[in-house]
Amino acid sequence: MNSTTGYLTTTVDAVVNWARSNSLMPMPMGLACCAIEMMAFGGPKYDVGRFGSEAMRFSPRQADLMIIAGWCSYKMSHAIRRVWDQMADPKWCIAMGACASSGGMHRCYGVVQGVDNFMPVDVYIPGCPPRPEAVIHALMDIQEKIRNEYSVTQDYTSGQKEIVELSARPGSLTVEGRKVALDASSLADA
């Protein structure tokens, strides 16, 4: 085929998602022993650089993937939430290990029983601690999620507007990016 006459069709989404998914910059929130496995995940043997995530950013402003590695106490939850709020959108979160996902063996008064009690989590990794392969798998799941995202306005819907079903959690985002209202009456003008 002559290179001057060939062409390629794609969407902006495909390009943007390809770029985003292959350059995730993790914010390592190392709280306990899982952080040691997270270092192996970043180190030369498991080499997360193959997936474009070798640049760990210790500033939330430069990161778009938070890896919460370890158990989170009630005192620490406020700091984690603040760092999460400082990360620029779009951002994703991995709860690494049993403790971050559910409190794990720390079933006691001082440990938050899962970080999803105060912030959104995209992928949960089981294990105590998980092996670096499992962390890489979680990263690949995040990449898969990003590649299926629609970052620009959906232009393929037409006709009557869809009635948005109320989700279980008020305040979460709908497919169209609107906030789910607290009651059905405030949806009337939507």
Partner: peptide, 25 residues
């Protein structure tokens, strides 16, 4: 109680626009 007393320790708000109650920085 081992599992603590519900509500005795504050968590950050569950919604993104909720006000943060403790300021570590």
């Amino acid at each position: 109680p081992l599992l603590g007393i519900p509500g005795s320790l504050p968590l950050p708000p569950r919604v993104p626009e909720g006000e943060l109650t403790m300021d570590p920085f």
